[in-house]
C-alpha cells in the first residue's frame, strides 16, 4: 500500500476518477443512441463557471461545482432543444461544432482571460489539507503528511461522487426511464410508435450528460490550479468518445473501464509516448471492426456473473467490483 500514498499515484487516481465521470456523461447520452461530441464543451462550461465563481465571487467550492454543472445544463437546454431533433451524424457534427463555438467564445471573453486561461484556481487538495490542519492534525498521522491526508480526502470525495453516479446510472438502467432510453436506442421509430415521447427522453438524456460533464469540469478545475481553452479542444472530445468506444457503452461499467484504461495506459507506456496517438487511432478502428460493442457489454457481464458466482442474479454492482480486483 506504501506506493499508493505516493502523490504521483494519488494524482493519477484523481485523474482516473474525473475521466470516469466523463465516461458516465457520454454513457448517459449514448444510452438513448445519441452520439454527442459536445461533452468537452460542456466540461469547459462547468470548469470555467466553477473556477470563476470561486475566483471572482468567492463562492465556496462545494457550491461552485454543482453550479458549474447547472450552467452546463442550462446551455444544454438552449442548444439541446433544437439539436436533439437531429439524428446520428447530424447530431455528432452539430455538437462537435458547438464545442468549437464554445471554445472560440471562451477565447474572446474578457472574464475567461482568453488564451491565457485562469490560473491560481482554489485547489480542493490545498483547501482540504488546510481544513485538516485546522482540525489539529497539522503534523499528519502515522507518517502520513497533512498534504497526503488532503489528497486522500480529495480522492475520497471524488470516489463518493463517482460512486453515487454509478449507483444512479445502475438504478436508471433498471427503471422505467432507463427502459425508455433503451427502447429509443434500439429503434427510435418503434419506440415512438409504441407511445414513448422520444424527444422528451432524448432531451433528458442530453441534459443529464451535460450536467455530469459540467460537474466533471468543475472538479477538474479545482484539482489542477489552472484551466485554459486548450484543455477542452477537439482532442478532448475524441478522448471522451474513446472511453465509451473502448470500454463499451451498453453498460455503465464500459466507459468507466475505458476511462481507467486510457488514463493508466499512457503512464505505463511513457516510453512509447510518441506512438500513443497512433495507438489511440488504431484502437478506434480495431474496436469498430472487431468489437463495436466495446470491451464490456451485457453479454460479457452476464457471462462473468455465471462464471464467478453460482448465486442467482442480483444487482450487478458487486459482481463487477469483484471482477476487476481479483
Amino acid at each position: 500500500m506504501e506506493f499508493l500514498l505516493n502523490p504521483y499515484y494519488m494524482q493519477l487516481i484523481t485523474f482516473i476518477i474525473i475521466n470516469a465521470i466523463l465516461g458516465i456523461s457520454i454513457y448517459l447520452t449514448l444510452s438513448t443512441g445519441q452520439l454527442s461530441l459536445g461533452n468537452a464543451g460542456f466540461m469547459s462550461v462547468g470548469a470555467y463557471t466553477s473556477a470563476l465563481l470561486t475566483l471572482k465571487a468567492g463562492v465556496p467550492l462545494y457550491a461552485a461545482v454543482p453550479l458549474g454543472g447547472a450552467a452546463a445544463c442550462l446551455l444544454a437546454a438552449i442548444i439541446g432543444i433544437p439539436t436533439t431533433r437531429l439524428r446520428g451524424i447530424y447530431l455528432a457534427i452539430a455538437t462537435l461544432g458547438f464545442g468549437e463555438v464554445v471554445r472560440v467564445i471562451i477565447l474572446n471573453l474578457k472574464i475567461t482571460n482568453g488564451a491565457l486561461g485562469l490560473s491560481s484556481i482554489p485547489s480542493m487538495g490545498v483547501m482540504l489539507s488546510k481544513g485538516i490542519a485546522a482540525f489539529g492534525l497539522a503534523g499528519g498521522i502515522g507518517g502520513i503528511s497533512v498534504r497526503q491526508l488532503g489528497s486522500i480526502a480529495v480522492i475520497l470525495i471524488l470516489a463518493l461522487i463517482l460512486g453515487f453516479l454509478i449507483f444512479f446510472a445502475l438504478r436508471l438502467s433498471s427503471s422505467r426511464l432507463g427502459r425508455a432510453f433503451a427502447a429509443i436506442k434500439a429503434d427510435e421509430h418503434a419506440a415512438e410508435v409504441s407511445g414513448i415521447d422520444t424527444r422528451y427522453y432524448k432531451l433528458l438524456a442530453f441534459f443529464m450528460g451535460a450536467f455530469v460533464a459540467g460537474i466533471a469540469g468543475g472538479l477538474a478545475a479545482h484539482i489542477t490550479f489552472y484551466i485554459g481553452p486548450k484543455d477542452f479542444a477537439y482532442h478532448r472530445a475524441v478522448e471522451i468518445l474513446l472511453f465509451a468506444v473502448l470500454g463499451g457503452s451498453d453498460v455503465v461499467w464500459g466507459p468507466i473501464l475505458g476511462a481507467v484504461l486510457l488514463t493508466v495506459l499512457p503512464e505505463v507506456l511513457r516510453f512509447a509516448t510518441e506512438y500513443r496517438e497512433m495507438i489511440y487511432g488504431a484502437i478506434l478502428v480495431l474496436m469498430m471492426a472487431f468489437r463495436p460493442q466495446g470491451l464490456i457489454s451485457e453479454s460479457t457481464l452476464a457471462l462473468w456473473r455465471t462464471k464467478l458466482t453460482r448465486q442467482p442474479k442480483i444487482a450487478g454492482q458487486d459482481k463487477v467490483t469483484r471482477r476487476t480486483t481479483p
Binding site: 505505463v268 472487431f290 464490456i296
Partner: peptide, 20 residues
C-alpha cells in the same frame, strides 16, 4: 465473442497488476 471478452478482461487485469 465471449472468449474474446474473457481474454480482454484478463489482459486488463494483467496490466493493472503489472503496473502495481
Amino acid at each position: 465473442i465471449k472468449k474474446k471478452g474473457i481474454v480482454s478482461l484478463f489482459l486488463m487485469v494483467l496490466t493493472v497488476m503489472v503496473l502495481g
